[in-house]
Design a protein around this nucleic acid. Structure first.
Lengths: 126, 126
DNA sequence: CAGAATCCAGTCAGATACTG
DNA sequence: CAGTATCTGACTGGATTCTG
């Protein structure tokens, strides 16, 4: 709630593409980060998740809800409004996620080097 | 090396299906665990990874190699023999993986409950 | 605003068969 | 033994269009 989400909170260069550690589907980790400081509305989430379509966001949120990580609250009344927030279980994931991010930051260079080098020299890639 | 891999080291009930935290593809996490105590041969890896086909194991290993997590060593000579072992980078993943496993163990019940409850009552599940 | 419906292309795991 | 080749069907992410 408090501060609006930074549209650039996810650096397009940084994404977890390099890190082998993943949380849920492609967007789940970012969604959880978006909810870290409190409930957010559907449209609010779409801002930092640049380019995500409504369908995909809906599917990711449903999966998070099914797994007990996120709670959905639809507020009645004309002009639909739906809030998503972390459950205690979802919030407890932030610790492991921090560990994963820290690992990625510390090993950034090694990860980049490995990718640049491609597979081991001398053997086919795909 | 020392002890052969336990064919049952991955409980068919336990698998990370419930945990939202993933390392690489479906098999990568298990492969890394298999290599924790030293180099293993291709066939050795297939034992605990019950049912994995050669093609899929090869693909997973190639991806791990490309990412700098595993090193492949082909020993020359008749009767092919290939060893796979963790690189220092790959070994450094064990810490975050332990954190993820610990999280999953601690929240096992909540995860199961969420799944049993299905999605939130009253709305469609897919 | 917060989705649902439909369609599409790429990726994934797996099955099966073959090879140096 | 340690793979490769080929073919499947399932799942994923996304684009587009439509709705209460």
């Amino acid at each position: 709630m408090r501060a609006p989400l930074d549209p650039d909170m996810f650096d397009p260069v940084c994404p977890s593409d390099l890190s082998p550690i993943r949380v849920g589907d492609k967007w789940a980790g970012m969604i959880i980060r978006c909810l870290e400081q409190g409930p957010r509305r559907f449209s609010e989430l779409r801002v930092p998740l640049r380019g995500i379509t409504a369908k995909v966001l809906t599917r990711s949120l449903r999966a998070l809800e099914r797994d007990g990580l996120v709670r959905r609250t639809a507020h009645a009344g004309r002009a639909p409004r739906v809030d998503y927030e972390l459950t205690p279980l979802g919030r407890s994931l932030l610790g492991p996620m921090d560990v994963a991010c820290e690992w990625a930051r510390r090993n950034w260079d090694d990860l980049l080097d490995a990718r640049e080098a491609g597979a081991a020299p001398g053997r086919a890639r795909d």
